[in-house]
Amino acid sequence: MNAPARKLGVQSVNRNTLSKQVVERIVQLLVSGQLKAGDKLPPEMELMEELEVSRSVLREALSALETLGVITRKTREGTFFNNKIGTHPFSVMLALATDNLPAIIEARMALELGLVTIAAEKITDEQLARLKATIDAIANSNDDDYGNADKEFHLIIALSANNPVLEGMIDSLLITHNRINSLIQIRERERTLEYHKAIYAALKTRNPQEAFNHMYQHLDFVRNKVLQYSLTQE
């Protein structure tokens, strides 16, 4: 009797960059249509045999896929592709580009630049007040520990677009934000405040063009900073 994973056409991987290759092979099951949203993946032992990898490598890949929102692991039930994955295609693309930092940063820029222009038209006074509160939190943070306030600032803007079609994009935005944020070694609070205040002012005056311009300047600064740090680590 053939193992279920064999029927799905899972290919074995080479010994280099094992975890990333496992991510790609599993995502390919979804992209190719061999499995669909909500389907259960083969058991770990079968995947280990088919992919010819250790349990630690497989679990590293599964953890990455879970963080990206592609799969859910349920105790005593198994591992499943998420039911909403079909409406969150960006999560799948991010899974395939997990080690392509420039592409991840550009994806974040594309998402946020579009969302901020819509936000300029739709953001409410209550959301503006919450946005201002995050700016105050950053200004009053100790030891430049303001990562959560920074994330909340960008999330409020994304949610203020108030468009159900963009729900999956917002999830992907948070994924890219977390990935990029983890690479920032030295924070520059005054620069962050300068960018956030300018974006806030543009949103308060309902000016999409100004909101776009200031968000671009902010994200371009972050892009150059993160990529420069990445180059020093190679």
Rank of each mutant, 00 (worst) to 15 (best):
V92M: 03
L115Q: 13
R108Q: 14
K84V: 04
T79C: 13
E50K: 10
P102N: 12
E46W: 03
A97V: 11
N82D: 06
L94W: 12
V70L: 08
R55L: 11
E66F: 01
D99Q: 06
L111C: 01
T98K: 02
T87E: 12
E106K: 09
K84Q: 09
V92L: 08
G114C: 09
M48P: 07
S56F: 10
P102R: 08
A64I: 15
N100K: 09
R59Q: 14
A107V: 12
M109V: 01
P42V: 08
E60P: 00
N100Q: 13
T98Q: 04
V70Y: 01
L96T: 02
E49Q: 11
M93Q: 09
S91I: 08
L111M: 10
L111F: 06
G78Q: 08
G69R: 06
G69N: 05
G86S: 09
L47D: 13
I105H: 03
T72K: 14
A110R: 12
L47C: 05
V53C: 15
R73M: 09
A103W: 05
E44Y: 05
S63C: 02
L96K: 13
E52I: 11
T67K: 14
L101K: 01
V70I: 12
E60T: 15
K84P: 00
M45K: 13
T98Y: 07
E44L: 09
P42A: 11
T87W: 04
M48E: 15
I71W: 10
T72H: 11
M93T: 05
P102T: 00
A107I: 13
L96H: 04
S63M: 08
S56T: 11
L62H: 00
L94H: 05
A95S: 15
E112V: 06
L111Y: 01
I104S: 02
A103I: 00
E44D: 07
A61S: 14
L113D: 03
A107T: 15
T72F: 07
H88D: 15
M93N: 06
E60M: 07
F80K: 02
E112Q: 15
R73A: 06
I104F: 01
L41V: 01
V70A: 00
L111R: 02
L115C: 10
E77K: 14
L58F: 07
E66K: 11
L58K: 06
T79W: 03
L101I: 04
F81Q: 13
R73Y: 07
G86Q: 12
G86M: 09
R108S: 06
L62I: 12
A95R: 05
R108E: 14
S91P: 02
L113N: 03
F81W: 05
A107D: 10
E106M: 03
F90R: 08
G114H: 14
E46Y: 00
N83S: 11
T98L: 01
F81H: 11
V57F: 04
N83G: 12
S54N: 10
R59N: 08
I71Y: 09
R55K: 13
E50L: 13
L62V: 01
A110E: 10
F81G: 10
E60H: 04
V116W: 06
T98F: 02
S54Y: 11
G78C: 06
L41E: 08
L68K: 08
S63N: 15
G69K: 05
I105L: 14
R59P: 00
M109R: 00
G78R: 12
I104T: 15
E77S: 09
V92Q: 01
I71P: 13
P102L: 08
L47G: 02
A110P: 12
P89C: 00
E66W: 07
M93A: 03
L101V: 05
E60L: 10
E112C: 03
